[in-house]
């Protein structure tokens, strides 16, 4: 199905997804700001804030995929969208840009704010690499869930992938904690980036790119779109 992209309509579809997700976005960004507001006030506030912050980012990721991709099929608004002058590739591009921007902008804002909070409060700066790796894992999880949501048409599989990826957060923290080159710097006054932490981060970004490429490849090979 080779053709040039219908850019004006892709822009309209991106705006549409932003408009339809505006309340969702406000809810999760508000929750994240609330979590960051008390994260540096003490030990239990730190753990509670980190838990709430991660929950907000995970919630935003899963909710976005559900509302903009899964529900479009489940609530049968997809036939309406596909009756417009777009191809399945246009649809995939619109969903990619809309979803990534909807998630990436608040994700980046939360990441920068988290680094800021860690830098300007008594929380050890040595935790910054771990925080960035974990935030990147949440971005990777979101991209994987998005890719599965685009490729498969079964809601159950998408939910299963969401659950599995969320369950991997604990083991990932455990594994990072057991890597001496990373965990030995957690209590440092300055952040330390070495080959171990940079390697994990690069692996995450490689998987992000791979998930997007595979999603587009399989989308383009679909012979039945609806």
């Amino acid at each position: 199905m080779s053709h040039s992209l219908n850019i004006p309509l892709i822009k309209i579809l991106i705006q549409k997804d932003w408009y339809l997700s505006r309340k969702l976005l406000a809810l999760y960004v508000g929750g994240s700001i609330f979590a960051l507001s008390f994260i540096s006030l003490g030990e239990w506030q730190f753990f509670m804030g980190v838990t709430l912050l991660m929950s907000m980012v995970i919630g935003l990721a899963n909710h976005l995929v559900t509302s903009t991709i899964i529900n479009e099929r489940k609530e049968q608004t997809l036939p309406f969208i596909m009756s417009l002058p777009i191809s399945p590739t246009d649809y995939a591009v619109a969903k990619l840009i809309a979803n990534k921007s909807l998630f990436f902008i608040p994700w980046l804002a939360i990441l920068i704010t988290t680094i800021g909070v860690f830098t300007f409060t008594p929380i050890p700066d040595g935790l910054i690499p771990l925080s960035i790796i974990m935030c990147s894992y949440l971005l990777l999880s979101y991209c994987l869930v998005w890719a599965v949501g685009m490729i498969v048409e079964t809601e159950g599989i998408v939910i299963l992938v969401m659950v599995v990826l969320n369950c991997l957060i604990g083991p990932l923290i455990y594994i990072l904690g057991s890597i001496q080159d990373i965990s030995s710097h957690f209590q440092s006054a300055t952040q330390v980036w070495n080959s171990a932490s940079i390697g994990v981060l690069l692996l995450e970004f490689f998987l992000i790119i791979a998930s997007l490429v595979i999603a587009f490849y399989l989308q383009a090979r679909k012979k039945t779109f609806l």
């Binding site: 609530e75 036939p79 246009d90």
Partner: peptide, 25 residues
């Protein structure tokens, strides 16, 4: 079709009984 569906759909009006609009709008 399907190669030139974008051009064709500029002038096609399609509705099906399983088609829904966005319920919150």
């Amino acid at each position: 079709l399907p190669e030139q569906q974008v051009l064709a759909k500029q002038n096609i009006g399609f509705a099906s009984d399983d088609m829904r609009l966005y319920k919150t709008e």
